[in-house]
Amino acid sequence: MSPVDERGASAGDMRSCAAGFVARVTARNRLPLDYSVASLRVVDFLVDGLRKGGGERERVLETLFGLGAYVGEVLVRRAGAEWVDLDADQRACFGQPVAVRMPDGRVWNPVGKVQNRFDLGGPGESLRTFYLTLHGRARRAVA
């Protein structure tokens, strides 16, 4: 079982998971993690820093999960998504216990997207671009 699965994360945990991650990261640094779309550039920068620092995926998995929770929470607050628990088949497909469902019913995997950014890098895996090109967003920002 991977460390992410061992966390036993559920949809109901993800908002507090994101908030806890932001509190830990911003306590030491002045990072503008304010749940804005623009803050997703900071997430790209942080993931790239983990990659360039030579971090092995297993050693940074908790940080990647926290960043994924943050990205998902941006989708919840800005795009009208909601956190959902995945069933067994979806968990096998996404490799995660939770995802977000957009207003049009599509399910997206922000934790997996962050992990892809770490594994693959490059502008094609940008989390800001992911948001901007995401299908199923609400037309107006959700508070």
Rank of each mutant, 00 (worst) to 15 (best):
A92W: 08
L64M: 07
L33A: 04
M1C: 05
G72D: 03
G95N: 12
Y70F: 15
E58N: 09
A11L: 05
W83F: 08
E6K: 12
L127Y: 15
F118V: 01
Q90F: 14
S39E: 07
D13N: 11
S126D: 08
E58K: 12
G8C: 05
L67H: 12
R139K: 13
L132Q: 13
G54P: 01
C17E: 12
V100K: 09
V98L: 01
S36F: 15
F118C: 07
G68H: 06
P3N: 05
A11P: 10
G54L: 07
V107W: 07
T129W: 11
D5Q: 10
R41F: 09
S36I: 10
G20R: 00
D89S: 13
A27P: 00
A19T: 05
G66C: 04
D44A: 09
G112S: 06
A92R: 08
L75M: 09
R77T: 06
L86S: 03
K113E: 00
G136C: 04
V37Y: 05
G53S: 11
E125C: 15
L33G: 08
M1D: 06
D44L: 02
F45L: 09
E82F: 08
E6D: 06
G54M: 03
F94M: 01
R91N: 02
G68D: 05
A141L: 02
E6C: 07
Q115C: 15
L46V: 03
A27E: 12
P103Y: 01
H135L: 08
K52G: 10
E6R: 11
L40F: 04
E62D: 03
L33S: 06
A143W: 00
S16L: 13
V98W: 00
P103R: 03
G112Q: 04
D13E: 14
Q90L: 10
T26A: 15
F65Q: 06
G55Y: 15
A11D: 09
Y131N: 08
D48A: 07
R28H: 15
P3S: 06
R7K: 10
L46K: 02
V142Y: 01
F65H: 06
R7V: 13
V114M: 02
L61F: 14
G105I: 04
F118N: 04
V42M: 09
E56L: 14
Y70A: 01
F45Y: 13
V114N: 01
